[in-house]
């Protein structure tokens, strides 16, 4: 197994995630795409951890940290989406353009 194949896979997932973030109207779907990007980063961490033969498994520990932070992010993110939905009866982020000129 080469290191590059994992990195290319991760790049593919990350780019697809970016596409989702940029193109989805619904905030919940944007959050889903963000999860894809985080998963790509996790793959990078674990693969590099193997590649540098880190006996202390630092890469894996950081993947765990990312999973934890992602959980927190989803919790807060969904709470905010919920709040926006409650106030504006819509969770579409392209309708949230109050901050324009």
């Amino acid at each position: 197994m080469t290191i590059a194949q994992f990195l290319v896979l991760s790049a593919a997932l990350f780019s697809i995630g970016i596409y989702g973030v940029l193109v989805r109207r619904n905030a919940v779907l944007v959050l889903l795409s963000v999860e894809l990007m985080l998963a790509a980063v996790n793959i990078n961490f674990v693969a590099f951890g193997r590649y540098f033969a880190d006996s202390a498994a630092g890469g894996q520990v950081f993947a765990l940290f990312i999973i934890t932070v992602a959980a927190a992010e989803v919790g807060i993110g969904l709470a905010i989406v919920l709040l926006i939905f409650r106030n504006r009866a819509s969770a579409n982020i392209d309708e949230l353009d109050v901050l324009k000129w």
Binding site: L99, K100, W101
Partner: peptide, 8 residues
Amino acid sequence: YIQTGKVQ
């Protein structure tokens, strides 16, 4: 007008 308010 560049500042459209559209996050994406």
